[in-house]
Write a protein that binds this DNA or RNA. Sequence first.
DNA 1: GTGGACATGTAATTGGTTACATGATTAG
DNA 2: CTAATCATGTAACCAATTACATGTCCAC
Lengths: 184, 184
Amino acid sequence: MNSLAYALLSMLVRKSCTGYELSQFLETFWQAKHSQIYPLLKKLEHADMLTFVYEHQTAKPDKKIYTITPKGKEVLSEWIGTKPSPPVSRDEFLIKAYAIWLTESETAIELFNERIDFYQKKIDFRIGIIAEIELQYGKQLLDPKASHFGRYILFKRKLKLEQDEVEWCQWVLSIIENFTDQSI
Amino acid sequence: MNSLAYALLSMLVRKSCTGYELSQFLETFWQAKHSQIYPLLKKLEHADMLTFVYEHQTAKPDKKIYTITPKGKEVLSEWIGTKPSPPVSRDEFLIKAYAIWLTESETAIELFNERIDFYQKKIDFRIGIIAEIELQYGKQLLDPKASHFGRYILFKRKLKLEQDEVEWCQWVLSIIENFTDQSI
DNA sequence: GTGGACATGTAATTGGTTACATGATTAG
DNA sequence: CTAATCATGTAACCAATTACATGTCCAC
C-alpha cells in the first residue's frame, strides 16, 4: 500500500470511477501515469478493496467502473489517522532559478514568463472549479463531515499556491528588468 | 543527466563541497538520500564535470571535496535555458486532507496541528537564513548576476509557501472547531 | 489526413528508498 | 551508555516514467 493506492481509494470513496477518470482527477494530488494506475487498481481489486463492473460502449472503448468495498473504506479511514510521511516536491524550475545568475537576462526573463503562463492556466482552471463547488454547495461547505469538504479545502490551498507562484515570478522579473535598465 | 545531477552542479558552481554537505544543502530543492548522491558524484566525475581531492581528517572520517570543471559549468549553463519539466509534488498529507470527512474531528485536529508544527519549524529556520543573507549582502541582493541571487529568491519563495501552509491549516482548523461547537 | 479524446493494458528502464556496512567523537 | 554528527559507500528493492500496443470517432 503506497500513497498512490490511498489517493485512488480517497477518490473512489466519493464516487465510483474508471481508471481513466482517476488519472485525470489525480491532478489534484500529482499526475500519475495510467501505466501506474491500471496495475494498482488490479492489485487493490485482488486485495478486496475494490470491485469493478464492465461497461460496454459502442464507438468508445469498453470501460471498467471501479467501486470501493467496505474493507477498502475501512483501510482508508484507518490510514488517515496515521502520521503522514514528509512531502516531496521535485521542481526542476527551482534549480534553474537557483542558478539563474549564470545566464543572460533574456533567458531568465523568458524562463520566468513561461512559468507565469504555466501557473496562470492552472489558476483559471482552479477558479472555475471552486466557483462551481461554491455554487453547488454554498454554506454546507463549512461541514467537515460532508464528502466535498476535503476537495474544497484542497482546491482553495492549491489556488493560493498558484497565485503566490505568479506573484513571486513577477517580483523576480521586476528585479531583473530593473537591473538590466540600470546597466544600459 | 537527471535533475538531481543539475541540482548538484548548481550547488557546486557556487562553492566546492563534499557529498555530505551537498546532501544537507539539497534540502533547498528536496531531500535526496546519500545513497543516491554518492554514486551520482562519481558518475559526474567520470563525465569530466567534476574533480575531487581527498582531505584527510583525524577524529573525523576523511572526505572528498568536489569541484566543478569548466565543462560542468558549461553543461549547467546550457541546461538552464531549456524548458523545465513540470513540477511534481507528492504530499501524503493532502490525500488525508481530501479524505478528512471520513474521520472524527479529534483526528482531523491532531493531523492539522502536527502539520502546523512541521511547517513552523521550517519557517523559523528559513527566517534565520534569510536574515543572514540580507545582513551579509544587503543591496547587492538586487543584482541578478551575483551568485547568491538565486539562493535568495528561492528562500523567499519557500518562506512564503511555508507561511501560507500554516495559515491555511489554521483556517481549516477554525472551520472544524466551529462546526464541532455547533453540534454539541 | 492528422491529431486529440476515449479507454486499457504490458515491458523495459530509470529514479529513489531502505537496509547493510564501518568507525571515531562528543553531548546528554 | 546511548544517540547524534561526521563521512562514504554498495545492494536490494520498490516506485515511477517512457515506450510499445490497439482501436474508434470526431473535429479541423
